[in-house]
Each structure stands twice: as C-alpha cells, then as structure tokens.
C-alpha cells in the first residue's frame, strides 16, 4: 500500500474533526487505553496481537450499552477521499456498539485504507456477494440540523476516533 491514501485519509479525517491515532499492533492496547473513556464497550478485534484492554466490556447488557461512553469496533476498511470507515457489523454486535456509545473508536488496518469510493464500492459489492449482511459507510459523527442548528450526536455517536494499525 502506498503512503498516498493514508496521507489523504489523515487529511480527510482532519477536515471532519475526527482524531486519528496511529499505532503498531503490538502497542495497540497501551495506545488506546487512554482514549477509552469509561465505561467502554467493544467487540473483539480481528487483528492479530491487537487486543482490547480488559476494561472494555465485550458482552454488554442493554443498560451497559446505553450507558457506554466509548464503543470500540474494527472497521473493515477506510475510504481515504472521504475519511469514512466501513463498519461491518453482524452477530458480533458491532452495530449497536458503534451506535450507542457517545464516542465510536474505529480500528482500521493501514492496508485496508482504500483510495476512493470507486474502490470502496468494488469491495462492498464483493463483501455483499460473499455474505456480509451489513456495511455502514460512516463518515464523522452522527449529526442533525433539524433542531435549528447543527448538533452532533443524533441517534448515534457525537465523536469518532480512528485508530490506524500501521503494520497491518
């Protein structure tokens, strides 16, 4: 993977006001620990040697989910041009975890940062065909202007942080 999409990804995220944290997989736990406001919920990550700190509840009750300050999930890929992450939830519960906490922390491998929507939709189509039932192209926090001015956190997180696994 060339450095270019990563640089674009970083600047797109900056435009969106989304924090980007870069880390190596084996330093993941110590890098993210300070980012996770308690109480935190999460879904297990599919990246070798990047494991969630113990403080993260991976089997939350409804009440814990709703009270969560942070929700950590993996993101299948990122889209550099737009600063989007693609959350592919399923039975593991990535959908509620990424949706109910005040802040969503999305973990994406650097090799999964795609340059643009064209590439992203080729991947999305492939994934759907091989059985992925749900992919959310999420760009920045949820937002609404329905109440008279722009408010972040409208039936969804008000903050998003992206953690980039540089060696994955």
């Amino acid at each position: 993977m060339s450095a270019e999409p990563i640089a674009t990804f970083a600047s797109s995220l900056e435009d969106l006001g989304v924090d980007l944290v870069r880390t190596a997989a084996d330093e993941f736990a110590s890098t993210v620990a300070p980012l996770l406001d308690a109480p935190a919920v999460g879904t297990p990550l599919p990246f070798e040697s990047a494991t969630l700190p113990d403080s993260v509840e991976t089997d939350p009750t409804v009440a814990e989910l709703e009270a969560a300050a942070t929700g950590v999930t993996a993101a299948g890929y990122g889209i550099a041009d737009y600063g989007s992450v693609v959350v592919q939830g399923g039975a593991d519960g990535a959908e509620p975890v990424s949706l109910y906490a005040d802040e969503h922390v999305a973990v994406v491998a650097a090799s999964d940062v795609l340059p643009d929507m064209d590439a992203a939709f080729d991947r999305l189509a492939e994934d759907v065909r091989s059985g992925t039932r749900q992919s959310i192209v999420a760009t920045g926090p949820s937002a609404t202007a329905d109440m008279g001015s722009l408010v972040e956190g409208a039936h969804g997180p008000m903050d998003v942080t992206v953690v980039l696994l540089e060696d994955r």
Binding site: Y82, S84, L124, V128, T132, R133, Q134, S135, I136, V137, A138, T139, G140, P141, S142, A143, G156
Partner: peptide, 9 residues
Amino acid sequence: VTSYVSLFT
C-alpha cells in the same frame, strides 16, 4: 457524503 450510508442486505 452524509454521516451514514448504510448497506443492509
């Protein structure tokens, strides 16, 4: 792009 483009199958 809007915050969410959700592809549900």
